[in-house]
């Protein structure tokens, strides 16, 4: 059974007097223990998708479609049901320094959720100490007594991961968990998150702009563009055999460790927001393979165990793969 099901989700945000679309029909599934990546450039709607999953959309947002978590409809449920669902989801945000209350001790942050569920402080403390050790903090006891400003960004993100695991979640939502960290810390934190998740069989919804990083930790990846998913595919196939020209562009726009490329292939133009998107394919203006048929509305078409929102997907198959080989 699917743990999380997002079905044809549309979200409009209020900007002044008008409503601006940010999500235009997003569908997504995460089954128990599975790791799913949601990849795209900034402004494509990936963070808004996670906020919808937590029912934490900004005030004045309107939604259509459905978000089901463990069978309950999150967007329509009563507050108590929503709260109960949130307590089964561990969340790791991009910027731990902003996302952890600066005036409370680490101990307080980690154990707060468990204590609000009626766990005894002593038991919560013991579990917190174990988890802090699991995420690689050397002196957990000392860490517990510290304030956030006394820890480095990498340490704080480990604390956040430990806190997410405190209540034995079935799903971890990680929204760009390493973007605010420096490169060496990034890989450590990512490895910890990946390892702990696998050990415990917790599902992961991983949000990132970094396709390679997502491919390293996820089983399946959805690529988003202008408020829509343009391709969903097994992570292993995405780099060498992309179905959508945008995915191919993302893959070749990243420096490779194995090859020395002369100049990185950037995607021409700038990303469109959902608001600016034309009726047809939103990527067409930047696409090297544009044809008149691209101005028609595009549907997600199943193709070789994946899905792509491109009329020419079958035609272009094999021509898009990484050109470095």
């Amino acid at each position: 059974m699917n743990l999380l099901e997002v079905d044809d989700l549309h979200v409009d945000l209020r900007t002044g007097d008008t409503m601006a679309p940010v999500l235009r029909g997003v569908s997504l599934r995460v089954s128990a223990g599975e790791a799913v990546g949601l990849v795209g450039e900034s402004g494509c709607g990936k963070s808004m998708t996670t906020r919808a999953v937590m029912n934490l959309l900004p005030r004045g947002a309107t939604t259509t479609g459905r978000v089901r978590f463990e069978g309950s409809d999150i967007l329509a449920a009563e507050r108590a049901v929503v709260r109960a669902s949130r307590q089964r989801i561990g969340i790791v945000f991009q910027d731990p320094r902003a996302h952890i209350n600066p005036v409370r001790r680490i101990e307080d942050f980690i154990t707060e959720q468990a204590r609000s569920q009626g766990h005894v402080r002593r038991m919560a403390d013991r579990r917190a100490l174990e988890l802090l050790e699991d995420v690689g903090i050397e002196d957990p006891r000392r860490c517990m007594t510290r304030y956030p400003h006394q820890l480095s960004g990498g340490m704080l993100q480990r604390v956040m991961i430990a806190a997410a695991l405190m209540v034995e979640p079935v799903l971890i939502l990680a929204d760009e968990p390493t973007t605010a960290l420096d490169v060496t810390t990034q890989s450590e934190v990512m490895a910890i998150l990946d390892e702990l998740r696998r050990e415990r069989g917790v599902a992961l919804l991983f949000i990132s702009h970094d396709l390679d990083l997502a491919m390293a930790v996820c089983d399946r990846i959805s690529v988003m563009y202008a408020g829509q998913i343009v391709e969903t595919r097994a992570a292993a196939l995405l780099h060498d055999d992309p179905l959508h020209p945008y995915t191919a562009g993302l893959a070749s726009a990243r420096p490779s460790v194995a090859h020395t490329a002369g100049r990185l292939a950037a995607i021409p133009g700038r990303p469109l927001s959902a608001l600016e998107a034309p009726e047809g394919c939103a990527f067409a203006p930047r696409c090297a393979h544009e044809k008149p048929a691209c101005s028609e509305p595009q549907l997600l078409v199943a193709l070789d165990e994946g899905e792509a929102r491109c009329v020419r997907a079958t035609e272009l198959r094999g021509l898009l793969g990484s050109k470095r080989g």
Binding site: V82, A84, R86, Q87, H99, N101, A163
Partner: peptide
């Protein structure tokens, strides 16, 4: 409106 309050909401605190 702070982010850490959003965290607290996301953790399902009352």
């Amino acid at each position: 409106d702070r982010e850490h309050v959003q965290t607290a909401q996301a953790r399902g605190l009352p």
